[in-house]
């Protein structure tokens, strides 16, 4: 698998990690890991599109800002997202997230994510050429 995500342990909270062929793909996978903390992405229909943008002067801050923007959109719109298209150019991120309004009986959402932290924060290229993006989020 070139593009993939996983969760990693933290005593009080939990880490989200994404890999991709590009930095943008790793950011998209990290967003999928974020969604999967809340609900199974497979049961979230990607029927409504939302545009997001953020920027930062380095990649790690950009990841925190990206996940923070998603957390804010989920909260304000009362939506969950299951598909992401991300573009990153010169420290600016533009994305489209597809999802639907929260439906508790169907989505069985486990937990709200409060925010993205700078803990275990890492964005970089691995020896195998793939990009990694990860941080701990507060739940």
């Amino acid at each position: 698998m070139m593009d993939a995500w996983e969760h990693f342990s933290h005593p009080a909270d939990v880490g989200v990690r994404g890999w991709g062929l590009t930095k943008a793909a790793a950011f998209a996978q990290c967003a999928l890991a974020l969604t999967a903390l809340i609900a199974d992405p497979a049961v979230i229909a990607p029927r409504l599109a939302v545009s997001l943008a953020c920027e930062a002067d380095h990649d790690e801050a950009l990841l925190v800002n990206w996940l923070s923007a998603l957390i804010c959109e989920m909260s304000v719109r009362n939506m969950l997202f299951s598909r992401f298209e991300v573009e990153i150019n010169d420290g600016r991120l533009n994305a489209t997230a597809w999802g639907e309004p929260v439906d508790p009986p169907r989505h069985q959402p486990a937990v709200e994510v409060k925010g993205a932290t700078y803990h275990a924060l890492r964005v970089g290229r691995l020896d195998d050429g793939r990009w990694l993006a990860q941080c701990v989020v507060d739940v």
Binding site: C72, S75, G115
Partner: peptide, 9 residues
């Protein structure tokens, strides 16, 4: 949560 996010940054 958002106040914490905004001011941490």
């Amino acid at each position: 949560h958002q106040v914490a996010t905004d001011y941490s940054r």
